[in-house]
């Protein structure tokens, strides 16, 4: 499943970021394999806005189409 195909309000886990140009930049913002994302806004024909931890990031549609995700349901990060 691609990040661009996920609807608002869903929670997903990143499997892989395809675009090698943006992989390091995405990792710096917290979007890398294993990261949990909450889909906050989906702009039609536009970016997908996701929340990871406390940070909100707008991901361009083409980049989102190259991010493979899987359903994460209601996985809560382990307590500290």
């Amino acid at each position: 499943m691609r990040l661009s195909e996920v609807g608002r309000g869903r929670r997903v886990a990143v499997v892989n970021v395809a675009d090698p140009r943006l992989r390091p930049q995405a990792a710096r913002l917290g979007i890398q394999a294993g990261a949990l994302l909450l889909i906050k806004v989906v702009v039609p024909h536009g970016p997908v806005v996701v929340q990871t931890g406390p940070v909100t990031v707008a991901v361009g549609r083409r980049l989102a189409a190259g991010i493979e995700v899987r359903e994460a349901g209601l996985i809560v990060p382990p307590p500290t």
Partner: peptide
Amino acid sequence: PVPLLLDLPP
């Protein structure tokens, strides 16, 4: 164009 990757401040 490089796809958007933008941090949205509160």
